[in-house]
């Protein structure tokens, strides 16, 4: 039986377009923060770190055995200063490629994605990651969709995943059908349940505001 996907793998997978394998359109840095949050969530459910509104603490610095997570656990554990979650989101978001690429590689190794290289105008290289078999993505979308449309309690894992997905604005893409239009309040309630996801949302919003402000400064209104 295949080992369950980590949050990091799930975010990487759900951030890709079903058909083309291209990354779904997201606000600037949203995916970087989403992936950073996913790493922290994976470390938290592995019992390696714990969080509250003010700090992230290391509970157990011994490696998890998962190469997707252990470099980041080692990095956090090596810092003698206790920082809030937002600090580590920023650190990991700055290293998005180092988080994302190993997760993509593992999804290919698992047979969930395939790598596809194309050329635009015969010159510009374009790499895509279409799904081999979309059942993992369909399964998680169906499960989370039922949770959003219903009134059931989420289990902690689904609460974390919904919170991360909303934090990096992926819910806007994944749950975009008309049936979800009236469920914004329910989605907001579910997304509040995990602290890391809330911090991802705050960091993403701050980045969007900062970019918007910079653009308004650079391009004065006519």
């Amino acid at each position: 039986m295949m080992k369950p996907l980590t949050f990091t793998e799930e975010i990487v997978l759900l951030a890709l377009d079903d058909q083309t394998g291209a990354q779904l359109p997201l606000p600037v840095t949203a995916l970087a923060y989403g992936l950073a949050g996913a790493v922290l969530a994976d470390l938290a459910v592995a019992g390696k770190i714990d969080t509250d509104e003010k700090k992230l603490v290391v509970l157990d610095a011994t490696p998890t055995g998962d190469p997707l997570l252990d470099p980041w656990l080692a990095l956090i554990a090596a810092d003698n200063t206790v920082h809030p979650v937002a600090h580590w989101l920023s650190v990991l978001a700055d290293r998005q490629r180092e988080v994302e690429q190993p997760a993509l590689d593992r999804l290919i190794d698992r047979g969930i994605l395939k790598r596809q290289d194309k050329k635009i105008l015969w010159v510009i290289g374009l790499r895509r990651y279409p799904t081999v078999d979309g059942h993992e993505r369909t399964e998680v979308r169906t499960r989370l969709g039922q949770l959003i449309l219903g009134e059931d309690l989420p289990d902690p894992r689904d609460a974390i995943l919904i919170s991360l997905l909303r934090g990096c604005r992926l819910t806007d893409q994944i749950f975009a059908g008309p049936e979800f239009a009236s469920r914004e309040q329910r989605l907001a309630t579910l997304a509040k349940m995990d602290l890391v996801g809330r911090e991802v949302a705050a960091a993403t919003t701050d980045a969007i505001i900062a970019l918007s402000s910079a653009m308004n400064t650079a391009v004065p209104h006519m």
Partner: peptide, 19 residues
Amino acid sequence: EYASSAGLRVFLLAAKQLK
């Protein structure tokens, strides 16, 4: 006196399992 994210997850797990 205090509950961290790990503690809240156990509470949610309990509520989910019982329900």
